[in-house]
Design a protein around this nucleic acid. Structure first.
Lengths: 109, 109
DNA sequence: CGGCATCCTGTCGGATACTG
DNA sequence: CAGTATCCGACAGGATGCCG
């Protein structure tokens, strides 16, 4: 699915579910969002909760989320490098989706 | 994510969102569910709405959905082979998730 | 119509090592 | 700490052809 960019555009144009699917459509991103909804995180925080996701993959997913405007990267001042990732309004709005998922998961899975 | 079976089990055990992610976590499956929520479908129905998904992929996704108990395959009597796919109760319950996604997609994407 | 078998390629993502 | 670079294997999934 969404193999070519054209195909992706076509399907996304037609349906809002497809547009969300385009962003949520992989479990990894979903779990990152789940964590960020709770509170802002630092790069290394994800390593633990996501059961050893590789830094490469994490980096890629975060870039995608930032590009899509769901999340912002903040460099905080200090002697050592300190970066924080936090959801934007657009990202926080996914709360309802994630909660619907959590509710379903609890009840049926 | 969910690269090994063990990893998948571990993450799924911890969090309901992860469990839903395990099923919904790819756009293709999601769109199949979207269609099935509307009404039962036949194999070839998906080819159109999913913009040319290959029969191989479609077959695999349907099998997974059936295995997970979200959907049942019904062979209907008749001279020519006629199969229908319909959601189970567990599948229909995903309505809220999909609708939350639709709402979000409409508003923000 | 509703698939399955085979082949083959692209992409994802882990492992490892390195940097400012 | 927060990544980037490179390499490489696994696998998803398209294309094609065939079958009951």
């Amino acid at each position: 699915m969404f193999r070519t960019q054209q195909q992706r555009r076509d399907l996304c144009k037609k349906c809002p579910v497809a547009r969300v699917a385009d962003i949520l459509g992989d479990s990894c991103t979903l779990l990152i969002l789940r964590d960020l909804l709770e509170k802002p995180r630092r790069f290394s925080d994800f390593g633990n909760s996501l059961s050893g996701i590789s830094s490469r993959t994490l980096s890629n997913k975060l870039k995608r989320l930032e590009k899509d405007g769901l999340m912002v990267r903040k460099e905080l001042a200090g002697r050592i490098s300190h970066v924080e990732y936090a959801l934007t309004k657009k990202g926080v709005a996914l709360h309802d989706v994630i909660e619907a998922m959590r509710k379903y998961g609890k009840k049926y899975l």
